[in-house]
């Protein structure tokens, strides 16, 4: 979204954001996301989290925590956060009125073909999120990233896009994506192995007795296992903080 009275000449990557909204606290520590990069003194960080998170941040950043997922579960019954986070951004910036927010949530979700009752639930969610934070106006943020130009060397064989280290998925800790965690109730589990077969990410292995063991480093929380378990032995718990 690009809107201003003057022409906006920034495009693509935003090197020095004034407001950063993070949908899950686990993203704060994700080395491929790096949401805090380029933030200046006095900028605003919003984290969707039920708890405060220890952040190493060299800049004086105004940080706000709210549990928007809880509100989404309350209003929609699912962790769908687009209207919620949009509402927070509108309010924080102080640029968008509640009415404009409601109008655009209704318009955009109608464009997507959503049913009227689901649109109304999103509107209620957006309204509650809007009132859950205060506007923080910013002025005179000064951040000058240092971007040194370097020469690219010819790398021979290393410069060919070949992937030699197979099985490197474990390096990407996709466990941080979970909103709900599957937990096996050993009292109910019969070691039938159905969950092991169905897990689309091969994150379930079987122990010596044949009971499932979930690899929480990489389980994305898709919950296919909880649906497929014939004994309903895999419960779910909301993930509040991932470590």
């Amino acid at each position: 979204m690009r809107l201003s009275d003057a022409p906006i000449l920034e495009r693509g990557h935003i090197f020095n954001p004034s407001y950063v909204l993070v949908t899950a606290p686990s993203l704060l520590f994700d080395p491929t996301v790096k949401p805090l990069e380029g933030m200046a003194d006095g900028s605003v960080l919003f984290v969707n989290s039920s708890k405060e998170v220890q952040i190493v941040q060299p800049k004086k950043v105004h940080t706000i925590y709210r549990d928007i997922t809880e509100l989404a579960l309350k209003h929609i019954g699912r962790d769908i956060l687009s209207a919620a986070m949009g509402a927070v951004a509108c309010k924080l910036s102080g640029l968008i009125s509640l009415q404009s927010l409601v109008d655009s949530v209704e318009e955009e979700l109608a464009e997507l073909g959503l049913a009227a009752d689901l649109i109304e639930k999103n509107v209620q969610l957006a309204k509650e999120c809007y009132s859950s934070v205060e506007s923080i106006s910013l002025r005179g943020l000064d951040y000058k990233p240092s971007h040194k130009v370097v020469e690219v060397q010819y790398m021979g064989e290393r410069g060919i896009p070949d992937l030699l280290s197979m099985g490197n998925t474990i390096l990407r800790k996709t466990g941080s994506w979970r909103v709900f965690t599957p937990i096996v109730d050993k009292n109910l589990c019969t070691a039938c192995g159905i969950c092991y077969i169905y897990c689309p990410e091969a994150c379930i292995s079987l122990d010596e007795q044949g009971y499932p063991v979930i690899n929480y480093n990489n389980c994305k929380g898709c919950l296919v296992c909880t649906v497929e378990c014939p004994r309903r032995a895999i419960k779910t718990e909301r993930e509040t903080i991932w470590s």
């Binding site: 971007h147 040194k148 130009v149 790398m155 896009p161 030699l164 280290s165 390096l171």
Partner: peptide, 18 residues
């Protein structure tokens, strides 16, 4: 091409080559 990008490429090449 920038130094920060060269460093990123280098770290990813290391992963790719094991």
């Amino acid at each position: 091409f920038r130094e920060d990008e060269a460093m990123l490429v280098d770290s990813l090449l290391k992963i790719a080559s094991g």
